[in-house]
């Protein structure tokens, strides 16, 4: 059986191996992704984002258990930050998902962001594809703990849940642009703590201030993840939201944007590879030195490197 056939059969080792390949050596993984692409597009992708410690892993765990009662198959991509110095990472999201580990219809993969900004890893979209092709009904993407502008999750998800908790700062934080604008559903987790009603009022106010053309008004829901409180209501809202997105055509638009972004990203990546293929490290270093010593400026450097790039490109074309 080929690797892709195994993946289609839900073989978790095959899935895990291809994910590793995607992360380490994307060029070699591409032929497999090509084959799998035709089976993708069935899973609903749910992005779960929010600040560190707000309860994203716990909410993911509880929603997954809820879905398992309905016999839905679930994939989870749990992203944690990589060290900018060593490149290493401690991936600890599984701690909150221990009971899911031995459920054969749940596949969890912890992923290091590996220097990618925006709350995801560079490989996230491809990992979504692999889990989609293996037959998952729902795929959760749990982002790194985000601050104010890591909003890449909207570019790969159908629906986005923003998990917040009381006591994270004054109300001006809520009206800042960025992260607070991307939630389709707001989850006020740890709502047994002081300040949750105030936080809800603040989010409500912010939502009234945003003028959106869409008819969907993001609901704000209270949960206590650790106690499993509010999880069923939350899932009902996710369903309502996906229904709305499908009927209104918004889901189609989002997926269209996602596809556009994917093509653009792949294009960018292949040119990046070519850059390093055509321009030697020494050549690049030479320009870096010149600019550093004020013998030249970066704009001229790019012009010079582009000339080398083009020359090589034409040579390759001959």
């Amino acid at each position: 059986m080929s690797l892709t056939e195994k993946i289609r059969n839900g073989d978790s080792r095959a899935v895990a191996k291809l994910i590793t390949m995607v992360e380490n050596d994307f060029q070699n993984a591409q032929p497999f992704l090509k084959e799998l692409h035709q089976y993708c597009g069935k899973a609903i992708v749910v992005g779960i984002t929010g600040p560190p410690g707000s309860g994203k892993s716990t909410i993911t765990d509880k929603l997954t258990k809820h879905l398992r009662k309905m016999n839905k198959k679930v994939g989870i991509i749990a992203i944690d930050p990589s060290s900018p110095f060593s490149g290493g990472a401690i991936l600890g999201d599984r701690i909150r998902m221990q009971d899911l580990t031995t459920d054969k219809d749940v596949f969890i993969r912890s992923v290091g962001a590996r220097g990618h900004l925006g709350g995801l890893s560079r490989s996230t979209q491809a990992v979504v594809k692999i889990m989609d092709a293996m037959g998952k009904d729902f795929i959760f993407i749990e982002t790194v703990g985000v601050g104010q502008s890591e909003i890449d999750v909207i570019k790969v998800s159908d629906v986005v849940l923003l998990v917040v908790m009381p006591g994270m700062g004054d109300d001006i934080q809520v009206i800042k642009a960025g992260i607070m604008e991307i939630g389709d559903i707001f989850v006020v987790n740890k709502s047994d703590r002081d300040g949750s009603d105030k936080l809800i009022a603040e989010i409500e106010m912010m939502l009234h201030l945003i003028e959106k053309e869409e008819k969907w008004h993001p609901p704000i829901l209270k949960t206590v993840g650790t106690e499993n409180i509010g999880i069923d209501v939350l899932w009902k809202e996710v369903e309502k939201c996906t229904d709305y997105l499908k009927e209104s055509g918004e889901m189609f638009l989002r997926r269209k944007n996602r596809t556009r972004k994917e093509i653009f990203d792949l294009f960018q990546e292949s040119w990046r590879e070519m850059f390093f293929q055509f321009i030697s490290e020494e050549r690049l270093e030479k320009e870096v030195e010149r600019v550093l010593k004020q013998n030249d400026n970066p704009y001229n450097a790019v012009k010079k490197l582009s000339a080398i790039f083009k020359e090589n490109l034409f040579k390759e074309g001959e």
Partner: peptide, 30 residues
């Protein structure tokens, strides 16, 4: 922490793991 600082990706799964959980996590995390 030491392995992280040496550039490795460390998956930490928490306390009280059964052998089954350890094996399954090792498979999924490759």
């Amino acid at each position: 922490r030491a392995l992280r600082d040496a550039g490795m990706e460390v998956i930490y799964t928490g306390l009280r793991q059964t052998p089954e959980q350890i094996i399954e996590a090792a498979i999924q995390e490759d």
